[in-house]
Design a binder for these strands. Structure first.
Length: 275
DNA sequence: CCTCTATGGCGAA
DNA sequence: TCGCCCTAGAGGC
């Protein structure tokens, strides 16, 4: 699940469930025992994200920094029975518990208590985040334009753009007909601006729904349901991601696949051009 | 039961 | 470029 939208959505959930309260903090699995002890009994001020980095601010300048990595998951749920702690299932690194909510964190790549200087350092290394206001896409373009690295690689580099993962990467390149293996230096400023604007438009729907939406017809459907106040179930449909060998939704040509820098890359060999 | 995979990222070679 | 870390769920036998 974890591309940037997941973390921003989580930050919102944690804020809503635990903001300005003092949850019990524990580490049922034991691997975050010291950190849990440090935070337990401290007021949780609020939660926020930059790209794929998630922060939970506690009092006394203590911040919980979490990176889900590839397989981490954090479930924030209302208690089935208020006031009654649910049993722990699986390897729960960190649990937040209030009278009304529980939040179980499993399998994160990073889970640690950091000070404000470390927060600045971590965020300072990140590129602009399409999910936040007042971000500067030129900071990203400055790193793209001179680079011999592929556009695919650059889009996944969190120091270039923060929050884009493999799905948004593959899909947004398809949407703008950009071949993923083009060197960054061949990407025109206007094309980058279009890609950035598209991420700014698309990713909030991921935050809203909890699912990555990159197909316009899916987006229209979801928008209509939300406006009507209907419950929405977002179909897991993509243009190229994990569709190797299937026909491109735009031109019918076969979707290509290759492993680049250890990650699956998908694109249409016909309508995504190298030039 | 086992093996494989995943929307990440790090460090060693 | 590769191996490795973290976890759960799916699929094969």
């Amino acid at each position: 699940m974890p591309e940037g939208h997941t973390l921003h959505r989580l930050a919102g959930s944690i804020d809503a469930a635990f903001g300005e309260s003092t949850p019990q903090v524990s580490s049922p699995q034991g691997r975050f025992a010291d950190g849990a002890t440090l935070l337990d009994g401290t007021e949780l001020m609020g939660s926020w994200a930059h790209g794929k980095l998630l922060f939970v601010d506690f009092a006394d300048e203590r911040t919980l920094y979490v990176h889900l990595g590839l397989i981490g998951k954090w479930f924030v749920l209302p208690l089935p029975v208020p006031g009654e702690e649910p049993e722990v299932a699986g390897a729960v690194r960190l649990r937040l518990l209030s009278e009304e909510h529980v939040a179980d964190l499993r399998g994160p790549m990073a889970c640690q208590v950091v000070d404000p200087a470390e927060v600045s350092r971590l965020v300072g290394r990140q590129g602009p985040d399409p999910l936040q206001p007042d971000q500067d896409p030129d900071v990203a373009y400055a790193r793209i334009t001179g680079s011999g690295r592929s556009v695919a690689e650059l889009l996944m580099d969190q120091t270039v753009v923060a929050g884009v993962g493999n799905i948004y990467r593959c899909e947004v390149l398809w949407r703008h007909r950009v071949h993923p293996l083009r060197p960054g230096r061949t990407l025109k400023r206007a094309t980058w601006q279009t890609i950035w604007d598209d991420l700014v438009a698309l990713m909030p729907w991921g935050v809203r729904t909890g699912s990555i939406i990159t197909l316009d017809d899916v987006l229209e459907d979801v928008r209509a349901h939300l406006e009507a106040g209907d419950p929405v179930e977002v179909p897991r449909e993509f243009a190229v991601y994990q569709r190797a060998g299937e026909p491109c939704l735009r031109c019918g040509s076969r979707v290509r696949h290759s492993v680049v820098a250890g990650r699956n890359l998908f694109w249409c060999g016909n309508c995504q051009r190298r030039t």
